[in-house]
Design a protein around this nucleic acid. Structure first.
Length: 274
DNA sequence: CCAATTGTTATTTA
DNA sequence: ATAAATAACAATTG
């Protein structure tokens, strides 16, 4: 489920429950696949007894800082989520990693195990963290940066280009569709075919969708289930895109769903022409 | 049994 | 050599 704003939502959920709290126990299934940079045992030993100091997100990544020099990096993959349960919670089948405080269990759950958990010790953030592309809402994400990137990916469909994390960090399948829908650009258009005006519109809508998603999904006050995604307005494409026969809230026409760039893509043919 | 899934990466093809 | 397309990853659900 997790794209930019969902990732921020999950980070806040853990942060709100455990910031300033000590980790008294670490539970793990020790699924090697999930623990990339360090074995689960190292995380266990490293985090036990430490205190959650701070946390942050960048793109689809999260970084939690424990004590002064312990860093837990989490990527939720396609089906990962973070939950908060009681301190006595017993992990279920897909709960691969649990941090227990005096009052809560912070649970990382991921049925398909496309996610990853990283561990780093050191004074500053791990190298892979600093390699994440500048955020879409940062000043470095300019119309010119977008135009140049589209030129370099000229022969790929624009939908596929929007999913490239090296330039559009945090954008995933639904956000890409939302952006193109707002920008009135057909997802199958080749990146190199966009006019200067369209490229600039795309830049603007990238920022608008990120801002709106963060405010709507991650900005709410309640981080306990089942609040994720529940109050997204019907004026977005989001609530109409998931099954065949959806109606475009802007044109009232029927939405189309087809695979583009290897992903199911939804668009409104009345406002997004080839 | 078949298709589909809001992500990433390795491999293959052009 | 480069970029784009595809397969693979794993598990569940309809």
């Amino acid at each position: 489920m997790p794209e930019l704003a969902e990732v921020e939502f999950f980070r806040k959920r853990w942060h709100q429950a455990a910031q300033g709290k000590q980790i008294v126990q670490v539970l793990t299934h020790d699924r090697k696949k999930l623990f990339r940079s360090a074995p689960a045992s190292e995380l266990k030993n490293g985090l036990k007894g430490t205190t959650l100091r701070s946390s942050m997100t960048a793109a689809k990544q999260m970084l939690f800082r424990f004590g002064s020099d312990k860093w837990l990096g989490i990527h939720l993959g396609m089906t990962g989520e973070l939950r908060v349960e009681t301190a006595t919670y017993s992990p279920l089948k897909h709960d691969h990693f649990v941090l227990v405080t005096k009052r809560h269990s912070l649970v990382f759950s991921d049925p398909r195990m496309f996610g990853k958990i990283e561990f780093h010790q050191g004074k500053s953030t791990p190298v892979w963290w600093s390699r994440i592309a500048p955020a879409i809402l940062s000043e470095q994400f300019t119309p010119d940066v977008v135009a140049k990137f589209l030129a370099r990916r000229a022969r790929a469909p624009i939908k596929a280009v929007l999913l490239m994390q090296e330039r559009f960090p945090g954008i995933g399948n639904w956000m890409a569709d939302e952006i193109l829908w707002r920008a009135q650009i057909h997802p199958r258009r080749l990146a190199g075919s966009l006019s200067h005006t369209e490229s600039r519109t795309l830049w603007r809508e990238c920022r608008t969708v990120c801002r709106n998603a963060l405010r709507t999904i991650a900005g709410a006050g309640n981080y306990l289930p089942p609040d994720l995604n529940t109050h997204i307005p019907d004026t977005w494409l989001f609530n109409h895109r998931w099954c065949d026969g959806g109606i475009c809230p802007k044109t009232s026409g029927t939405l189309i769903r087809e695979e583009i760039g290897g992903r199911t893509t939804c668009w409104s043919p009345k406002r997004q022409k080839l």
